[in-house]
Amino acid sequence: MHDRDSGRDDRGIRLVGFDADDTLWRSQDYFDAAQLEFERIVGRYVDLQDARAHERLYAIEARNIALFGYGVKGMVLSMIEAAVEITGERISASDLHRIVGLGKDLLQHPVELLPGIREAVETIAGQFDVVLITKGDLFHQEAKVRQCGFASLFRRIEIVSEKDAATYARLFEEFALQPTQFLMVGNSLRSDIAPVLGLGGWGVHMPYHTTWVHETEAVLPADADLRMRRVEAAHALPAAVRELAEASLELTDERGP
């Protein structure tokens, strides 16, 4: 990591990471719309409530993460499996083809930045080195990064299969950082905030108005209130990062060199 200012104090936070989906640009809205269409397709065969279609699809998706990973392709494969199971194998080939089409539409959807996010990232990048850390399908994530228009702000772009404590610990080693020198910005408590706080880092949680249930399942450490801030919109990110950066310096001073 390079210094923005050769005289910069390297105590405290040195690197700020950003999540991508639903932090920089819209994503879950499109997945939600695809799930509604999936339920309309399956609803031609069964009563959705009686069949517990919503819950059964999520159970299959969660079970398949270890095999397919995250992203559109894994979701579509899980939808096909769920459709066959929920309908008792009665679903037609044409309707299975419609489900495949849902995935193709998702993969081709243009990137839509969240309001004010580019300006917020630019401001933070003027004060800290910034990296992008996202998970999902490699090709799809690479395409969205290319389309976003400000990928050049990030010192590094990491597309990983999972965002857990082991992944962040590996990245800290590669970045030559202590966890206490890293702050993560993201919408997911499970993937963006809890693992980093658990390792001793810092976090800014910017919830999105809709979140996949899988990403809400998280246990935060007891001192989360000290090392995490919550903001409602991108314009508040720079101030939250500065506040935590100051807190990290105070903590360093208390502990000593």
Rank of each mutant, 00 (worst) to 15 (best):
D137Y: 02
L138K: 06
F139N: 05
H140Y: 01
A143W: 00
A143L: 07
K144S: 02
V145Y: 04
R146F: 04
R146Y: 09
Q147V: 00
Q147E: 03
Q147M: 03
Q147W: 03
G149M: 00
F150Y: 07
F150L: 04
F150V: 00
F150G: 00
A151N: 01
A151H: 00
R155D: 14
R156V: 06
R156Y: 11
I157M: 11
I157R: 03
I159C: 08
I159V: 13
I159L: 09
V160R: 11
V160K: 09
V160F: 09
S161F: 08
S161Y: 11
S161W: 14
S161Q: 14
E162W: 01
E162V: 06
K163A: 14
K163M: 15
D164M: 12
D164E: 11
A165K: 13
A166G: 08
A166T: 02
T167D: 09
T167C: 14
T167L: 02
T167W: 06
Y168H: 14
Y168I: 04
Y168F: 15
A169W: 10
R170F: 13
R170C: 11
R170M: 12
R170S: 14
L171D: 07
L171S: 10
F172W: 08
F172I: 01
F175K: 00
A176R: 13
L177I: 06
Q178A: 11
P179L: 08
P179D: 12
P179T: 05
Q181P: 02
L183F: 06
M184C: 12
M184T: 04
V185E: 04
V185I: 11
V185Q: 05
V185P: 12
G186H: 06
G186R: 13
G186V: 01
N187E: 07
N187P: 05
N187Q: 05
R190A: 04
R190S: 08
R190T: 05
S191A: 10
D192H: 06
P195I: 09
P195H: 09
V196I: 10
L197W: 10
L199V: 02
L199R: 01
G201V: 01
G201L: 14
G203D: 15
G203Q: 01
V204I: 15
V204C: 01
H205C: 04
M206H: 08
Y208K: 09
Y208V: 10
Y208D: 14
Y208S: 08
T210G: 03
W212D: 11
W212A: 12
W212R: 00
W212L: 15
W212C: 05
V213F: 14
H214V: 04
H214R: 15
E215D: 15
E215S: 07
T216A: 06
T216E: 11
T216R: 05
T216M: 10
E217A: 05
A218Q: 13
L220K: 04
P221G: 03
P221A: 09
P221C: 05
P221F: 12
A222F: 10
A222P: 10
A222T: 13
D223P: 02
A224R: 03
D225I: 02
D225S: 02
D225K: 07
D225L: 08
R227M: 12
M228Y: 01
M228G: 05
